[in-house]
């Protein structure tokens, strides 16, 4: 499953690079996001397999970067002024909260406690829902909702973060009382990871190809 996960991430990045001109500026930040994601996973794997070190700090560094990039993608695709303002303000608030938290709990920075993931998930789920509400209620005539890559991204975010916000929270509880159950439960986030990248690939491929105009 690990190799399938890496393959999907890599394919996602390749498809993004191939279709980047058709995607336009609104999804330009998806590329850096995918690169960061791939880098963090490869680094973690290298540390565990080669260096035999079990570190978590790279995820805690990656979390705010992921949040900012994701939020900016939604920011570029939502028209509601109030929602955009909330998105802009949420980034510095999120960063400040994390800095304050890790200042008081430095040990958590290299632990499996993903408070930052929980907070990030909460906001990203809200942005995804708001985007879907906006696109469903739009006055514009849209050929097909399936040709909007951000639609697929929103659903991927909803599925992945809603599933994981529950399981990550539940996992810490189970770690104290039933370790076996906890380990088995971690299959679900791995599956959600695969579905997440699969949906993004579908979204990138479904985008209409921009016709090239020829100058006379």
């Amino acid at each position: 499953m690990k190799y399938l996960y890496y393959a999907l991430m890599f394919i996602c990045l390749m498809v993004f690079l191939y279709r980047r001109e058709d995607l336009g500026k609104s999804l330009a930040l998806l590329g850096p996001l995918l690169v960061c994601s791939l880098t963090v996973e490869l680094l973690t794997d290298y540390q565990r397999e080669v260096l035999c070190i079990k570190n978590w700090y790279q995820y805690h560094i990656y979390q705010p970067i992921e949040y900012i990039l994701m939020t900016m993608i939604f920011y570029n695709n939502i028209r509601n002024v109030l929602v955009r303002k909330a998105m802009l303000w949420s980034a510095p608030i999120f960063l400040t909260t994390l800095v304050v938290y890790y200042s008081f709990q430095p040990a958590s920075f290299n632990s499996e406690k993903f408070i930052d993931f929980q907070v990030e998930s909460f906001f990203l789920i809200i942005w995804a829902i708001l985007y879907l509400v906006e696109i469903v209620n739009t006055d514009a005539v849209i050929e097909s909702i399936f040709r909007l890559p951000v639609f697929w991204l929103s659903f991927a975010v909803l599925l992945f973060y809603t599933g994981n916000i529950f399981i990550v929270g539940f996992r810490d509880f189970l770690a104290k009382y039933d370790v076996k159950m906890r380990d088995t439960l971690m299959i679900v986030p791995r599956c959600l990871n695969l579905i997440f990248y699969l949906m993004i690939i579908v979204g990138l491929l479904c985008t209409r190809t921009r016709k090239k105009s020829s100058s006379v």
Partner: peptide, 10 residues
Amino acid sequence: EEILFSIILG
């Protein structure tokens, strides 16, 4: 049972 629980949840 754990597997079943995970499958049901998923």
